[in-house]
């Protein structure tokens, strides 16, 4: 576990003092990088904030262990986000990820591993938005804390049908995720 794990905890606990430190230690270098790649200041702020929110979501179950400095991790997330933004909008901007910022090789590999996990999670949530409305409804409803029996009753279907349909929906989601990997 890297000592910067305290910042992950700070995001989960909404600790203003430490979150201020995250910005103090990282915002300037990441902003400089993004501006040099064609982003404006507002976009840089949005990307940095999204990176922190994605980190919070990934760490929400408290099972995430940071194994590299937070700066290496955040820089890599922001680079990827900006790259995707430029690709998506086909706008002008530098998509070369090289930055000239020195990051230890091992830290870079660890950051890469974390970002891959983050992207995997984000892919699942994006594909959940892409499956049929009924499937999305059934999958989301199963996380509301209502028992499966009550849920089936609320949806006006039998418990057996709901189980079968959920299985089909999850398989559909998994197939979509595998297809996009």
């Amino acid at each position: 576990m890297h000592p910067d794990q305290k910042y992950i905890k700070a995001l989960l606990e909404n600790d203003h003092k430490l979150i201020d430190e995250i910005y103090k230690n990282n915002a300037s270098s990441i902003k400089k990088y993004l501006l040099s790649r064609g982003a404006n200041e507002e976009e840089a702020g949005d990307i940095f904030q999204e990176a922190l929110i994605d980190t919070y979501k990934m760490a929400y179950d408290k099972n995430f262990t940071l194994t590299c400095p937070l700066n290496a991790f955040l820089l890599l997330i922001c680079k990827r986000k900006w790259y995707n933004e430029v690709q998506k909008k086909q706008r002008q901007g530098v998509t070369n990820l090289e930055d000239g910022v020195f990051i230890d090789k091992e830290d870079e590999q660890n950051a890469e591993m974390h970002v891959r996990q983050m992207e995997r999670e984000s892919l699942v949530m994006r594909m959940l938005d892409k499956i049929s409305e009924r499937c999305k409804q059934i999958i989301l409803a199963s996380y509301t804390g209502i028992s499966q029996e009550k849920l089936a009753e609320s949806l006006g279907v039998s418990y057996g049908y709901l189980r079968k349909k959920k299985s089909i929906c999850m398989s559909e989601l998994i197939a979509l995720v595998n297809q996009k990997k």
């Binding site: 909404n14 507002e42 840089a44 922190l52 929110i53």
Partner: peptide, 24 residues
């Protein structure tokens, strides 16, 4: 995990919005 995180994101978002105006 993401559904639970999303439900409790409001306070963190307010904090981040504040720091975004300070640092960006």
């Amino acid at each position: 995990k993401h559904i639970r995180a999303e439900e409790n994101l409001g306070n963190l978002k307010s904090t981040l919005n504040h720091f975004k105006t300070v640092y960006f």
